[in-house]
């Protein structure tokens, strides 16, 4: 087994495009659940909104590419409004049901043949990212430095994506230490208490849903441009739960946990994949037990197992405080 190559792949993935997209999306999820206590089980829907927003704006509506970025965010904001206005007056569970359903409804609708002229149907939208790559200084096909290796376009998106992630994180950090953040956290702890103290809980929850949704949309824009395509079947519900996995891994309601959680998530996924393929090639895993393509599925099982163990032995995640977590149990 080539440990060196597994390590290289893992560290490249930890800083790669997938991790950037996950980190950004998870920041949004952290705003929803970690700070406001909103149960959003359809976060991938917001990511899809961002991707389809930018894709459709450029290919379908023929807008200026930079205006397209704005359209991506607007899609996500509208999605948040449509989901939030009717459900946020109700108990938290209703938002959970509506978000998971709406994200899946959206995916099925955009991949329908009827809408193919608008959304590209099941093949999605391609050929919209070219204007952005005109700015790409990394023109070679492959870049390799230290343990990292990336394709030129990927490196371009990463160098834009990570600073953006840091910027958004700092923005959220400032927000959550302001009085606005205090209200939102109070709503997470007890909505009625916040209302009894004169805070319009509904309006703050809606603001939070829109903010987190817009950040999810930004993740979708990074994803769409980074892959130069929007594929409807990327946005399946299981992706939402991978985002949750990354958030819980890092620690819910902590400022740096989306970033570290996403990097670890992708590193671990790559390592398990590499190790299992290595074991297969040496014959340690016989082919009747698991063949090549099945490795990709089994590693997700291992992720599930890892999460279950995490919940048992370190439910607060990496950054969370156990003391704080245990307060709820009183």
């Amino acid at each position: 087994m080539n440990w060196n190559s597994i390590f290289q792949q893992a560290i490249s993935q930890a800083f790669g495009l997938n991790a950037v997209v996950f980190a950004m999306a998870t920041i949004g999820l952290n705003v929803h659940f970690g700070y406001t206590g909103l149960l959003n089980f359809g976060h991938i829907g917001f990511v899809a909104m961002g991707g389809y927003g930018v894709g459709m704006a450029i290919t379908t509506f023929g807008l200026n590419p930079y205006l397209g970025l704005l359209v991506g965010i607007i899609y996500a904001l509208l999605f948040a409004l449509i989901l939030g206005v009717p459900t946020l007056r109700l108990r938290g569970d209703y938002l959970a049901i509506v978000t998971i359903a709406a994200s899946e409804v959206f995916r099925i609708v955009v991949r329908s043949t009827t809408l193919a002229p608008l959304t590209g149907g099941n093949t999605g939208i391609t050929a919209f990212a070219a204007p952005f790559y005109e700015l790409n200084p990394f023109t070679e096909r492959l870049y390799s430095f230290g343990p990292f290796f990336y394709t030129g376009p990927n490196l371009f998106m990463i160098t834009i994506g990570w600073p953006l992630v840091i910027l958004v994180t700092l923005g959220i950090w400032q927000l959550m230490r302001s009085p606005w953040g205090r209200v939102v956290k109070a709503i997470r702890e007890d909505e009625d208490a916040a209302r009894a103290l004169g805070k319009n809980a509904y309006w703050y929850k809606l603001q939070s849903l829109m903010l987190g949704g817009a950040i999810g949309g930004l993740a979708g824009i990074l994803l769409a441009i980074g892959n130069s395509t929007v594929q409807p079947d990327y946005f399946v519900p299981v992706q939402t739960f991978f985002l949750w996995a990354a958030l819980i891994l890092g620690g819910v309601g902590r400022i740096w946990s989306p970033i570290v959680g996403s990097m670890l998530f992708w590193a671990l996924l790559t390592i398990t994949d590499g190790v299992m393929r290595g074991l297969q090639s040496t014959g340690a895993i016989p082919s009747w037990l698991m063949d090549g393509p099945q490795v990709g599925q089994v590693r997700f099982m291992l992720v599930g197992l890892g999460l279950a163990l995490l919940m048992v032995y370190r439910p607060q995640g990496i950054f969370g405080s156990r003391q704080e977590m245990m307060l709820d149990a009183r």
């Binding site: 956290k185 997470r188 009625d192 208490a193 209302r195 009894a196 103290l197 004169g198 805070k199 709820d328």
Partner: peptide, 23 residues
């Protein structure tokens, strides 16, 4: 709504205290 009444100066407490535990 409760928050408007609170803003006007009518504030209540609860029988089961609602301290915001993680603040």
């Amino acid at each position: 709504s409760p928050f408007r009444l609170a803003k006007m100066g009518m504030v209540r407490t609860f029988q089961l205290t609602k301290s915001l535990t993680r603040l």
